[in-house]
């Protein structure tokens, strides 16, 4: 048996810390995909995945927020059961709801840029309400545009059907998730490090 001896090229402290945070937010988004709540009036069950997308953008900023959601999508593609209701796999990305999954990295980037701008990361607790809500509204729009289009193309249905089946029932839930994100960011319970 032979032993290979090579120089060890250590990963820097900052990158190690950031990859840990990105992986944790990706896993958190995956766990949120299992937590399902019911809307009071329509009783449509919905999951909290998008909340994970919002939080990744708000707490990690544009660069690592995107990285975190890329990790989420890739981990799901190779078999981690992180997509809605515990599904996973390459097939999910090309399935009926694949459009939603493709949009998450982009949406996290939009939230990140909207909240932090292009420079240093700001303290999310001190970002104005308008910026927070605006960034999340823009991200929600992108997520639903991708999702509805994906559902219509892959499912071979009209855009109207796709809107009725895959978007409209869930929009009220997004407003609740955005409100929850604002509440979390503004509360003292969570301090970003």
């Amino acid at each position: 048996m032979s032993t290979a001896t090579e120089d060890v090229d250590l990963v820097g402290e900052e990158i190690a810390a950031n990859i840990a945070r990105a992986a944790l937010f990706a896993a958190l988004t995956g766990v949120f995909a299992y937590v399902s709540f019911q809307l009071p009036v329509t009783s449509v069950p919905f999951t909290l995945q998008v909340l994970g997308v919002f939080l990744a953008g708000v707490f990690l900023g544009p660069v690592w927020g995107v990285a975190s959601m890329v990790l989420y999508v890739v981990a799901g593609a190779v078999g981690a059961p992180v997509f809605a209701y515990g599904s996973a796999g390459l097939g999910s990305l090309f399935g009926q709801w694949g459009g939603y999954l493709w949009s998450y990295p982009l949406a996290a980037g939009i939230v990140g840029i909207g909240v932090h701008g292009r420079g240093e990361l700001a303290d999310p607790g001190h970002v104005g309400l308008g910026r927070l809500v605006g960034a999340m509204a823009a991200a929600t729009l992108v997520i639903y545009a991708f999702g509805t289009l994906g559902y219509a193309i892959v499912g071979d249905v009209s855009l109207v059907t796709a809107l009725v089946a895959a978007a409209l029932p869930f929009v009220p839930a997004e407003a609740i998730k955005a409100a929850a994100t604002v509440a979390i960011v503004r509360s003292d319970a969570v301090t970003a490090r």
């Binding site: 990859i19 840990a20 990105a22 992986a23 944790l24 990706a26 896993a27 995956g30 766990v31 990285a67 990790l71 989420y72 890739v74 981990a75 190779v78 981690a80 059961p81 992180v82």
Partner: peptide, 11 residues
């Protein structure tokens, strides 16, 4: 690869 491995284990 590292991130994906971490996601699997943290889940």
């Amino acid at each position: 690869g590292l991130g994906v491995g971490l996601v699997f284990r943290l889940l």
